[in-house]
Every structure is written in structure tokens, then in C-alpha cells.
Amino acid sequence: MIDSSYWDAKYDVDNFIYTKDANRFVKEYCQPIIEKIGKSGKVIDLAGGEGRNSVWFAEQGWQAENIDFSGKALSKFLAFAEERRVAELCFANRADATGFESVLMPVDIGVCAYLQIPQPDLFDALDNLIENIRRGGYLMGVWHARENLETGFGGPQDPAVLPTASELREFLAQYPLDIEFLGNRDGQVQTKDGLKPSTTLVLLAKLR
């Protein structure tokens, strides 16, 4: 496992650094799938950190596996799940995104939200995630887009960890996926001075 000390230190605070609210794009794109499948669904939340998205899925009645390499983040996730009374539906899996073994696979949705890592590693992580999604299931992704460097606020400032829609489309062409949406959306970043605009790359694809 690669060194997680930076993230353990970052998450070692009393508050939730990314809030306890599920990402709005995850909710927007996954809610219709949840309604269609019902409460029998399973999801992998890859690099899910403190578990805001995982707990939201569990609150919808889904089994949710948060895969992250920070033990501190996963401890906060499990405590959050207890707080929201959905602990029985939540699973913590400490592993690297590029080499994890899921405890819930195959899942109905694989979520990759804000895994901002160099492109070769991101593609390895997505390859691993796709392998754990059932046929007919969905791949859902959210990232700070590379265009955010010019048109948005916040997020990483290294273009090497900021994907583009065209790069993702080219990579995903090798998989039996029907892309339902892949493009930039107007997002928002919470700052001490209020909400600032950001450019967010969003993906939703269905596995044939």
C-alpha cells in the first residue's frame, strides 16, 4: 500500500473536511438508478474518504463499500455510519484504488468521486473498478476538470491529475460501456468567502 500518512494527517481533525453531505452530482446521477433498483443495491465508493457518499447510499437502503487507503478516513466513516444508524450496510475496505479486492462485488454502481491522481494510476483504478461492476451496472465519476485551471476555482493545480472528457472517452472505448453522460458541469466550491464556481467533469456509463 502506498504511503497514506499525508491523508491520515489531513483527516485527523474533528470536523469532516469534505462535509457530511453527499456530492450533488453523485446524488443527481445515482438517485434515478437507486429508485429503479430499489433497496437491494450495492455500491463501491472508490477513494470514498470520510464516507459522505457511502453513508448517503446506505441511507437509501444500499450496501456501501468505502474503499480508501487512509485508516483515519475509514474510522471516521464507520463512526458516521453509526451516527446515521446505517452501520450494518456500510463496509470499510482499506486498500489502494489501483489494487483493491472488493467485499461486495459485483456491484450495481461503481463511484469514483474526486480521485485526482496521475492519469496512468487513475486509469488503473477505473479498470479495477469496472471489473467489479455487474453487467447492466453503472460507472459514475466526478472530478475537478482540467479546464478548472482556467475557468474555475479551487481543486488541484497540477494538470497531470485533472482529467478531460476526451481523454476519458478514449480510455473507456476499450470497455463494453454505453456512455450516458461525459462532460463538464458547472460546480461550486465552498470557501470561507462563500461559494465559488468550479468546472466539474462528470461521467455516467452503463456496462453492457
Rank of each mutant, 00 (worst) to 15 (best):
D3H: 09
Y6F: 14
Y6M: 12
A9M: 11
D14A: 15
K27T: 13
Y29S: 03
K36Y: 10
I37A: 05
I37G: 14
K39W: 00
S40E: 10
L46I: 06
L46G: 05
A47H: 05
G49Q: 10
E50Q: 15
F57H: 07
F57S: 01
E59I: 02
A64L: 13
E65M: 14
F69L: 12
G71L: 04
L74S: 13
S75E: 14
S75M: 07
F77I: 06
A79K: 15
A79H: 12
F80Y: 15
E82D: 14
E83C: 02
V86G: 00
L89F: 13
A95D: 10
A95W: 00
A95I: 05
F100P: 11
L104S: 07
L104V: 04
M105L: 08
D108E: 10
G110E: 10
A113G: 14
Y114H: 10
Y114G: 12
Y114C: 06
P120Y: 12
A125G: 05
L126D: 03
I130Y: 03
E131N: 09
N132M: 00
L139A: 02
G141V: 02
G141T: 04
H144P: 07
A145L: 11
E147A: 14
E147Q: 12
E150W: 01
G152V: 04
G154T: 05
P159K: 09
A160M: 01
A160D: 12
L162E: 09
A165P: 04
E167Q: 10
R169H: 11
Y175C: 02
L177E: 00
E180I: 09
G183I: 01
R185C: 13
G187S: 10
V189L: 13
K196S: 11
S198A: 15
T199F: 00
V202W: 00
L203F: 04
R208D: 13
